[in-house]
């Protein structure tokens, strides 16, 4: 009897079916979906690749700079990369529309190139320090910090030994 009552109640309440695929559906803000990479914020520390269980993130050096590639088809969307990324250069969006045809399998990537900078001292190529990171490290910036940011690690060390010049 309890079952029959349940069914009649169901009939009275009407379908609870989600409108999708014919209409909108519920998508929570925190949903871990398609990954976006912002090269402007990347410090090149590669922590994201280090914590990635699916081997979904690769870095390679190209002429344009340090290239980040993420392949969604082996990404578990666990979010550890975002969690451990100091500057949140890597971010999981709530976009879950990832279903694709087989011919697009290898094109399901997110890519970005971290442009190299030239050292203000020696002109050597380096990964530019990210302002977001320095903002995290130092409460306020000053000319000395700003200057150090324009140096490659070697020159920065030398500058440190000299005791700074502003």
């Amino acid at each position: 009897m309890n079952m029959l009552m349940l069914l009649l109640r169901n009939l009275a309440r009407g379908p609870s079916t989600d409108a999708f695929p014919f209409g909108d559906t519920f998508t929570p803000e925190r949903l871990r979906g398609r990954i976006r990479f912002d090269p402007e914020l990347c410090t090149g520390c590669r922590m994201c690749a280090h914590v990635c269980a699916g081997d979904a993130i690769h870095f390679d050096e190209t002429d344009e700079g340090l290239r980040f590639t993420l392949w969604h088809n082996t990404c578990t969307f666990c979010g550890l990369c975002e969690h451990y990324c100091q500057t949140k250069a890597i971010h999981l969006t709530d976009d879950w529309h990832l279903a694709h045809l087989q011919q697009d399998k290898y094109a399901m990537i997110e890519q970005g190139v971290v442009a190299p900078a030239a050292c203000a001292e020696c002109g050597g190529r380096m990964t530019a320090p990210v302002p977001a990171l320095t903002a995290m490290a130092y409460r306020a910036s000053n000319r000395r910090i700003e200057h150090l940011q324009t140096l490659c690690p070697d020159c920065r060390r030398k500058a440190g030994v000299k005791g700074g010049r502003s």
Binding site: N10, S16, P28, R30, R32, F77, G79
Partner: peptide, 26 residues
């Protein structure tokens, strides 16, 4: 029918997981 009813009740927990953690299972 009972299967569906229990699963619909479970959907509440699934929504909680997706809203708070971002995934329905993991």
């Amino acid at each position: 029918s009972l299967f569906m009813h229990v699963m619909e009740t479970r959907e509440v927990a699934q929504d909680v997981k997706e809203t708070i953690f971002g995934n329905r299972m993991d």
